[in-house]
Simulated assay, not measured.
Amino acid sequence: MNRYFYAFLLAFSFSVTSAYAQDTVREVEEVVVTALRKETTLQDTAITITAITSEDLEVRQIENFEDLQFAVPTLGFAKGAYSGSGITLRGIGNFAVGNSTSAAIGYFWNGQSASISGLYEAELFDVERVEVLRGPQGSLFGAGTTGGVVQMLSKRPDAEVGGNIKVDLGDYDSTRMSGAVNLPMSDTLRARFAFASLKRGGFVTNSYNNEELDDRNTIAGRATFEWDYSDDTVMTLIYETTKADDQRMRAARQFCKQDKFYGCSPFENGMDAVWSPGSYGHWVPYLQYQNTSLDYTVYRNNPSSDIRSVDLDFTPSHETTLQNTVFEIDSAISDTMQMVFTYSYHTRDYADHADYDHAVSVVPYAVGPIEANFFYDPYKNNM
């Protein structure tokens, strides 16, 4: 009797489970990518690729490239020297700045090569998709892509009127806004306008003058136009600009095992403040017998061990303007052949004023009849 009862329960459980599974079947979303310089599905693309859709960016709260590195395996992003930024994939990258350097990771904006340097200020807004291609991509994307490619594709206009706006409020008077408007102007002409802005107060204190540093004041806008020239030809024009004017810092506070000769000990780890005099300008005079002791210095150490406290001679300033333009003509010559003509133009105006040694001079020096501090703010004429 028990044997028949258990057999009945097993059959009933199997039928219920099968019916429940049929009711809860979910289709996998088909993601279209352009990693092969043409539209293909992600499943059919024979490249190691990660595609982050606009929905993924929203859910994961990815606002810029610094956030993107935490959502894509093996992707790294950091500020480089001076005006540069750098991307790494699988540990391969190049943070050098200069005309003689060659990039290891390519960055493409709407299908065209663009500068990586400005990504430090750029915001990700109204984005259709971000594609990260790992491995050499020179056959399709050209030079400077030996380690891979990162491609950003913005949203294109469609035939429906619509729009969206998003506002985020946070600590330190932080206000982040973004939005877009889609406007079909006629049966053949469509337009889309998008914007983003970020304003935030500083949360790093300069112990030298008690000013708050490292704020953000960035605004960006994009205009996209699509025109159906004929049934087989579409013309697209995209223009984007980003402006930043704030007191952001070039580098964060550093800690290590303090050493009066090296500044930071190369042999031990620690959480001491960096000994600012431990540099070329300190131990070279000591070796030349100009200083009698390594304790002698013309600089003062940062009196605070707080990670949000720095010691700078002056308040840093940061101004930059990025402009990206792409014009594209996409024409279907036949059922199996397509011709694409593209023109792109990218510019960046950059001005940065920063204290690179993170140290304040305490000993004045004489230049003829003028007595001045080692470092001064030329914008405030502090002599």
Rank of each mutant, 00 (worst) to 15 (best):
A103E: 14
V167N: 02
D168C: 05
L183R: 06
Q137W: 10
F70T: 15
G144M: 00
A81R: 14
V127N: 11
G138W: 12
G76F: 13
L89M: 07
D171L: 04
I92L: 13
R176Q: 14
E123S: 12
Y82K: 15
F141A: 00
G170C: 03
T145I: 00
F77Q: 06
A104G: 10
R176M: 12
A159V: 15
A114D: 03
P73R: 07
G84F: 00
T74Y: 02
Q137P: 03
G111Y: 07
T101N: 06
G163E: 09
D173F: 14
A143M: 07
K166E: 13
R90K: 09
A180P: 14
Q137A: 04
G135H: 07
G179N: 15
A180M: 14
G91M: 10
E131I: 04
D171T: 13
I87K: 05
S186F: 06
I92N: 09
T145V: 00
D171M: 07
M152Q: 08
V130C: 01
D126E: 05
D173T: 10
G170I: 05
G163D: 06
E123W: 03
L183K: 09
Y82G: 11
V149Q: 03
N99S: 03
F108W: 00
R176N: 12
A104N: 07
G98Y: 11
Q112S: 00
F77G: 07
G86H: 04
I105Q: 11
P73K: 06
A180W: 15
E160G: 11
G179S: 14
N164I: 10
G162F: 03
Q137T: 04
D126A: 06
M152C: 01
I92C: 08
S115L: 05
V149A: 01
G86N: 07
E131G: 05
S102R: 13
K166S: 14
S85L: 05
S186L: 03
S178D: 13
K155I: 07
D171G: 08
A104W: 07
